[in-house]
Design a protein around this nucleic acid. Structure first.
Lengths: 354, 354
DNA sequence: ATACAGTTCTGAATCGATCCAGAAGGGGTG
DNA sequence: CACCCCTTCTGGATCGATTCAGAACTGTAT
C-alpha cells in the first residue's frame, strides 16, 4: 500500500500534524524541517495528502458538478452545450477548481442517487425544464446551484443565468413576419413529451411543458399575432430530439404536403440546419423557397447562412460558474438575463407569391 | 447544519451501522425498519450518505479524471477533443461513474498539485507529448492511467489507445504524392517549442519533440521520400496553436512568397481549414491551385471538402475510458491501435504545371 | 534570574461514513 | 429442552487527513 501521512511522520520522527502542516501550511514549521519532511515523503513514495480525506476534514471538495438533463454523451454532440461547457470550464479553471460531469441516469429513481453521490461543492444545472425532481434532489442535498434558465418558482436566493427566451424568439420572428411570411411552421424538440415527430396540435404555446421551448414558441407566436396571424393558423412541428436528423425528419411530411409553409422557425440551430438539409434533399421540387431560422447562433449557423438569434453561450457558462463559485453579496445579482440579438443571414428571404 | 447518519440513527433509535445499511445494503435489515429509517431520514432532511466520507471509507471515488495538456477551455473548442470526450463520457456514463475534468495549470510546479488533489480513481491523459512530468505525477500518485498515444517508454503494464500516426500520415501523403505534388509544405502546431509561426528549419522530422507531430511529419516525409522528394526539399511550417487562425497565419508568408507549395499537408483538420481560409483570402492571386490535407476528419472537414485521414475519435475516448474502468486481464490488450483511413475529398487535385 | 513574546511542534478530537465480528432474538428440529 | 441456524441489529475500529489549544523551546528585555 501507498504510505500515509502517519508513515511519513514516523519515518521523520515528528507528529502527523507537522507533516500535514508541511503540505498545507508551510508557515507553521521551520523550512529545514519542512524540507526534510518533503524529502523523506518523496523517498517513501508518499503521494501527498489524500484528496478525499482532505475534503472530508475540510468540508469542501474543490469541484463543481455540471448536470445535464440529457445523456452526457449527447451533450458533447450539441454545439451549444459544448460552448456552454467551454465557458464553465474557463471560469472553473481560473478559480482552480475542477469540473465534475455527472451523468444523469434515465430512470427517475436513480437520478436522485446520482445527485447524492456526486462529490462536489455545488451544481450547475444545464437546461433543466420541468425536471423538477433534479432540482429538489439538489436542494435536499443542501448544495448551492445555478440554473441556466429563469424559473417561475425562482426565489430570491435562487441563482440563474438565462436569456429572455420570449423576447429573443420574438425578435427573429418579427424579421420573418416583416418579410411577409404568413404561412409558417414552428419547430421544437420535445414540444410535448412522447409526441411523435411531425405536426402537432397545441391549443396554446403555453401548453408546452419545457420552459425554454415554451418561451420561444410564445415569442414566435407574439410576433405573428401582431401581424394578424392567429395561433391556430400556425403549424407546430415536433422533433424527437435536438439533432439535425430529427429536425429534418420532423419537417419532412409538412414539406411534402399540399401547402408547405413559406417559413420554418426552429427552436435551435441544430434543428434549423436539419430543415435546411431536408430542403436541400427535396431540391427545387417546391413551388416557393422556404425561409428558415434557428436559435443560438452556433458556428455552423454562420457557414450555413442561417438566420438565427445569437445568445452568448460561453458567457452563459462562465457566468453560471462564477455565480456558483462566488455568490454575489446582493442576491438580486444572482439573477442574470443575458442579451440576445437576431442575426439576419441568407436563409430568410421575402415571401414570394406562389 | 445538515444532519448526519448518526442523527438519523438517534432519531430512529438504532445504530449508525443500521442506518448505513439501510442505504447501501438493503438486504441487511428488515424492510419495515428500512422504510422507517428512510422515512425519518427524509423527515430530518438527511441528504443521504456523504459522498466524500463514503469514498474515504470505501477506498474509491467513482470518478475518473481527464487530463488535458492544454487549457480546459481550449479543449472544448477543439472538435477532435470534444469528440474524444464524447466517447469517454459514453463509456463512463454506462459504467455509472462520473467524469472529472481537471484543469492543468500552466506552471510546472502546480501541475503536480492539480494531479495530487484530484479525487479520482484513475486518469485518462489526453494527448500528452513530452510532458512527462504529468505522467510521473500520476505514477507517483499510484493511480491507473491510460494515455491517448503510444509511448516509446510504454511498459507492458501501461495502457494506451492510439493510432499508427506515421502510417496514417503516410497514407494521405501518398495520395498527394500520387497526384504529382513535389513542392509541398507540412504544417503542424508547436513543431518546435517556442518557435515563431511560419517556416521552420528542421534537420529531420524526428527532431520534433511532440510524439504525435513527430509521427505525422515522419509519415508525410516517408511518402515523399518514396517519390524522390528528400526531406530538405520540404517546407515545414509551424503554427502557434492548433486553431484555424493559427493555421492561416502560419501559411500566409509562404503563400505570399515566390515559390508557394502546390500542396500543404497539415497535422490537423483545424489547421488545414485555416490553410483553406488563407487560400480563400488571397483568392486567385496564386498561379496554381493549392491542394490541402488535414488530419482527424472532424465534421467541418466533410462540409469543407477537405481531404484528410479519418481516425475514430469517439471510439478512442470510449476505449480509453473502458480500458481504465475495466483493466483487461491480458496486459497486451491494454495496448490498442485503432485503424485509420485516408478520406479523399475535393481539397486535393492533381498538380498543374505552372 | 524572571517574565514575556514568538516560534515550532504535538496530541487529541474530529470530519461522516463503512465494515466486520459478534450479540440478540426467533424459529425449526430432534 | 437443548441445539443450531438464520435473520436482524450493534459497537468499535477504521479510512487519512485537518484543526486548534496548548506544550516545549528560544531568545530578548527587564
Amino acid at each position: 500500500m501507498k504510505p500515509t501521512l502517519q508513515d511519513v511522520a514516523n519515518a521523520v520522527g515528528v507528529s502527523r500534524s507537522t507533516v500535514s502542516n508541511a503540505y498545507s501550511r508551510p508557515d507553521q514549521l521551520s523550512t529545514a524541517l519542512r524540507a526534510k519532511i518533503l524529502d523523506t515523503a518523496q523517498r517513501l513514495g508518499y503521494p501527498g495528502p489524500n484528496p478525499t480525506a482532505r475534503s472530508l476534514r475540510r468540508g469542501f471538495v474543490g469541484a463543481i458538478g455540471v448536470l445535464f438533463t440529457s445523456q452526457l454523451s449527447y451533450a458533447f454532440t450539441d454545439p451549444f452545450a459544448v460552448r456552454f461547457l467551454a465557458g464553465v470550464s474557463e471560469a472553473v479553471e481560473q478559480h482552480g477548481t475542477s469540473l465534475l460531469l455527472v451523468p444523469l441516469p434515465a430512470e427517475h429513481s436513480r437520478v436522485r442517487a446520482a445527485v447524492e453521490n456526486a462529490a462536489v461543492d455545488g451544481f450547475c444545472v444545464y437546461c433543466v425544464g420541468d425536471e423538477d425532481w433534479v432540482l429538489s434532489a439538489i436542494r435536499d442535498r443542501g448544495l448551492p446551484y445555478v440554473t441556466t434558465a429563469s424559473r417561475a418558482d425562482a426565489g430570491p436566493t435562487d441563482r440563474y443565468v438565462g436569456i429572455d427566451e420570449r423576447a429573443a424568439a420574438r425578435s427573429v420572428a418579427e424579421h420573418v413576419a416583416a418579410l411577409g411570411h404568413r404561412r409558417v411552421a414552428l419547430l421544437g424538440d420535445a414540444v410535448l413529451p412522447d409526441a411523435p415527430p411531425g405536426p402537432l396540435r397545441l391549443a396554446d404555446p403555453s401548453e408546452a411543458p419545457h420552459p425554454t421551448t415554451r418561451g420561444r414558441l410564445t415569442g414566435f407566436a407574439d410576433a405573428f399575432a401582431a401581424t394578424g396571424v392567429p395561433w391556430p393558423a400556425i403549424t407546430v412541428l415536433n422533433a424527437s430530439s435536438n439533432s439535425r436528423a430529427a429536425g429534418a425528419a420532423a419537417v419532412a411530411t409538412v414539406l411534402a404536403g399540399d401547402h408547405p409553409p413559406t417559413a420554418v422557425l426552429a427552436c435551435s440551430d441544430v434543428l434549423a440546419l436539419g430543415v435546411l438539409d431536408a430542403l436541400a434533399e427535396i431540391g427545387s421540387r417546391l413551388a416557393h423557397p422556404v425561409s428558415v431560422t434557428g436559435f443560438d447562433d452556433i458556428a455552423e449557423a454562420a457557414t450555413a447562412g442561417l438566420t438565427t438569434v445569437c445568445q452568448p453561450a460561453e458567457e452563459k457558462g462562465r457566468l453560471a460558474a462564477a455565480l456558483l463559485l462566488a455568490p454575489p453579496a446582493d442576491p438580486a445579482a444572482g439573477h442574470v438575463l443575458l442579451p440576445t440579438e437576431p442575426v439576419i443571414r441568407t436563409s430568410t428571404r421575402p415571401v414570394t407569391r406562389s
